[in-house]
Design a protein around this nucleic acid. Structure first.
Lengths: 348, 348
DNA sequence: TTGAAAGCGCTAACAG
DNA sequence: CTGTTAGCGCTTTCAA
């Protein structure tokens, strides 16, 4: 029933070693031999057993992906990019989602991963010191997406600069009381992007000689719901902000919702800037920072694959460009509403 | 450096066979022996080599997931559910995305998959006759999510009934000119859900003694953009519909966008019903059919795992419940707007 | 309950 | 360029 390499060898009239070489496209095989082998393999409907080949070669042809979630827009896009380039190089992708925190330790600590993966992609989770050490002990190529980590490849955007640009846009429009919807510092998974974005926000103020009223900071957890709640808090202030920078588009969606629920209008009463350029942002007419998420994933996977081919390749640190996309959720403070452009999700 | 089962055996003073049995929790091992082995393993920081154990046992402890995309809300949620329950049973999840169509053939045809997977989960892609045959030749448990397929386990919702309910809601509200934004029949990947939803839509008309004006049908491809385009077509009709049923929430988002772009209001000028209950639908105030997507994934994975444990378990066909969630994107034809509820994505 | 030994199907030296 | 021969690290009869 299921043909092995021996069957192929027999039919082709060569040794198993030759079959192995021929099928893997190694150079030292005559065209004729290769052809003979291919035909034999085809006639037997033979496919190599990845398991056997992994055991013998010590290579798994698999890239591991560690991500905190996989059902959020950002991570799904990332994984999609990773999967695309990995598979096109014949690599499998093994996903480790960290939704349960206790798995985190198990994942980074043990050889569990090392045994099943040739390279590792860590998404948006700067590993702790200990974890970095564990990673290094694995002695496999590692790339981190969305953070800069010593000793690891990294692919990311400049969160500080991007947030500064977003905030600068608001400041340029004359806003001075600008709110911030940021990730709670209590968040157990320690991302760096939120902190960086907050820094950029602050930096923009500083460079503009503006004072940030820290009562205008509210916390969310990168979800719509939390963004809505946070915006609710800001709106309940005695003197609410005239503009708000949200560390993610999803929180911005929540904020938009809260604003409308309070009977206010965007951008007339409040301007909103998000971060990500979520698929829906265009339709929500949200001014935001666009980052090439899928491309981040593709690039990171590509770097790892290159390093697997050529182990001497040096570590790289790639910073991808972002772009401020001005839509209709922001306007100059005090000005009339610009034109007659109606937002996508007009009031229902 | 890396300990093997032999090292453990030596330290524990037993044979490798016993180590294997002890570590896998097989019954025929004295508590004392097991304890000795565990300690030895721990002291050596030993983890089994999945590769070796796979080759020896013929089991991969891996579930394969075939999905057309992984960066769309529905599929990401599905995968998330699958991953959760698989991993908690010690199974890896291998994702095969079919974004490139040519991969489809390769995937179903060959033993490529069979060699790396103990069971297969096919998401929303009713396999063709040939493909079903291929699947059966693999002789492994297969579950299909979102479609009913002979000889396979299936986990799904009742798309016909759900769409009928959604449409019925519109009809109950007095609408008679109801538009339909459906998947293009030209779509190469053959899903059944779209067809079923269309059937349900038609059925609702029929049972209400209503005639469906087929000029009110427009096509999309389950994306926001395509929904927007489709709605644009409907709005350009001499006599546009007063309500529209969209086969997915994402297309509904696009439709909403188009409607506002045309200066019309929801639900005052047009009512909209979607399908899915996307994370954002609550905030877009979209009336829709909620389906338990993550649960579908969890259930399907669970069924497969059970069948792997107990190969005699019969195939199952599970239909999960859906629910009409009435929000503020629909209203009775001709009535005043209900109350003062303001939509989440109020006009920006 | 435990051990000995024979593979699982392939790859990787090492010869030739 | 091709064949021979050891393993890779585990599981699994079969005996004891």
């Amino acid at each position: 029933m299921k043909a092995t390499i021996e069957d192929v060898a027999r039919v082709a009239g060569v040794s198993t070693a030759t079959v192995s070489r021929a099928l893997r496209g190694l150079p030292s095989v005559t065209p004729e031999t290769r052809e003979k082998v291919s035909q034999a393999a085809a006639s037997l409907d033979y496919v190599v057993s990845p398991t056997a080949s992994r055991l013998a070669s010590g290579k798994t042809s698999t890239i591991g992906v560690i991500a905190p979630f996989i059902d959020r827009w950002y991570f799904a896009k990332l994984v999609s990019g990773i999967e695309r380039v990995s598979r096109s190089s014949g690599f499998d992708v093994l996903i480790y989602s960290l939704e349960r925190l206790d798995e985190r330790e198990r994942l980074f600590q043990h050889r569990l991963v090392k045994e099943r993966v040739d390279a590792l992609l860590v998404c948006s989770l700067p590993p702790s010191m200990d974890e970095v050490r564990s990673l290094q002990q694995m002695n496999i190529p590692v790339a981190v997406i969305g953070a800069e980590v010593d000793e690891c490849n990294s692919v990311r955007i400049d969160d500080v600069q991007s947030a500064k640009t977003a905030t600068g846009h608001l400041i340029n429009m004359g806003h001075t009381r600008i709110g911030l919807i940021a990730e709670s510092p209590l968040q157990p998974l320690s991302f760096t992007a939120p902190r960086d974005r907050r820094d950029g926000f602050l930096l923009a103020h500083q460079e503009a000689g503006l004072n940030f009223d820290s009562s205008l900071e509210a916390y969310g957890s990168f979800t719509i719901e939390s963004g809505e709640r946070a915006m609710g808090e800001l709106l309940s202030k005695a003197q609410p902000p005239t503009a708000v920078f949200c560390e993610s588009d999803e929180m911005a969606f929540g904020a938009i919702s809260a604003i409308h629920r309070h009977g206010l209008r965007i951008p007339d009463d409040i301007s909103i800037v998000g971060f990500d350029d979520h698929d829906l942002s265009k339709f929500a007419n949200l001014t935001t920072i666009a980052q090439p998420v899928q491309l981040l994933g593709e690039t990171a996977a590509w770097i790892l694959l290159e390093q697997l081919k050529e182990p001497t390749k040096p570590r790289t640190s790639t910073v991808m460009p972002t772009q401020l996309i001005v839509r209709n959720s922001t306007k100059r403070l005090g000005s009339d509403r610009a034109g007659a452009v109606i937002g996508a999700f007009g009031s229902i």
